[in-house]
Amino acid sequence: MAKLTVKDLDLKGKKVLVRVDFNVPLKDGVITNDNRITAALPTIQYILEQGGRAILFSHLGRVKEEADKAGKSLAPVAKALGEKLGKEVVFPGATRGADLENAISALNDGDILLVENTRFEDVDGKKESKNDAELGKYWAGLGDDIFVNDAFGTAHRTHASNVGISSNVSQAAAGFLLENEIAYIQEAVEKPVRPFVAILGGSKVSDKIGVIENLLAKADKVIIGGGMTYTFYKAQGIEIGNSLVEEDKLDLAKALMEKAGDKLILPVDSKEANAFADYTDVKDTEGEAVDAGYLGLDIGPKSIAKFVKDLEGAKTVVWNGPMGVFENPDFQAGTIGVMDAIVAQPGVKSIIGGGDSAAAAINLGRAEKFSWISTGGGASMELLEGKELPGLTALTEK
Rank of each mutant, 00 (worst) to 15 (best):
L395Q: 03
K283S: 12
S129E: 14
R96A: 15
L364C: 09
F196D: 02
S166R: 00
T38F: 06
G261I: 00
D8K: 10
A103P: 02
D150K: 09
E101N: 03
F176D: 04
V245S: 09
F176Q: 03
D207E: 08
T280F: 13
A160N: 03
L266M: 06
D34V: 01
N242P: 06
A39L: 01
V282S: 08
Q332L: 14
V148I: 02
T118D: 07
D340E: 15
V282M: 10
L364Y: 07
E368N: 14
L266V: 05
E286V: 15
N108S: 14
D269F: 02
K137D: 14
A253Y: 00
V16M: 00
L264I: 07
I351S: 04
E181W: 04
N131W: 00
I304V: 13
E187M: 15
T32M: 11
H156W: 00
K259P: 05
V123C: 09
E397Y: 11
H159V: 03
N242F: 05
A358Q: 12
V222G: 02
Y233F: 14
A358G: 13
V317T: 08
A394S: 15
F370W: 10
N102S: 13
E286G: 15
N102F: 08
K79I: 13
T280N: 13
S105A: 15
D150N: 12
S206H: 07
G71A: 10
L256V: 01
H156Y: 00
F91T: 07
N180Q: 11
I104F: 04
F370V: 07
A140L: 06
A219M: 05
S167V: 11
D150W: 06
P329R: 11
E247I: 05
V77G: 09
D340T: 12
G93S: 04
G52W: 02
E83P: 07
D28C: 14
S357A: 15
S167T: 14
G227Q: 08
L48N: 09
E116S: 07
S58I: 01
G287L: 12
A344V: 13
E247A: 12
S73P: 12
E312M: 05
S357L: 10
N33C: 07
K306L: 14
G202W: 07
Q345S: 13
M381R: 00
T393H: 10
A160Q: 02
E246A: 09
A75F: 13
T158V: 03
Q236L: 03
S105F: 13
T154Y: 03
K302W: 08
L252A: 00
E179H: 01
F22S: 05
K218D: 10
G125H: 04
K208Y: 04
S167Y: 08
V308K: 15
G210L: 01
S270V: 12
A273Q: 06
G225T: 04
S170I: 09
K306D: 13
L264H: 02
I185N: 01
G136K: 01
G175T: 03
E190S: 11
I209A: 00
L56Y: 08
P76L: 09
D109F: 12
I240K: 00
S380W: 04
K283T: 10
E101W: 01
E288W: 10
K315H: 15
L11P: 09
R36V: 15
L264N: 02
F176N: 03
A160S: 06
I224F: 00
K221D: 05
Y279E: 10
V325G: 08
F57P: 06
L389Y: 01
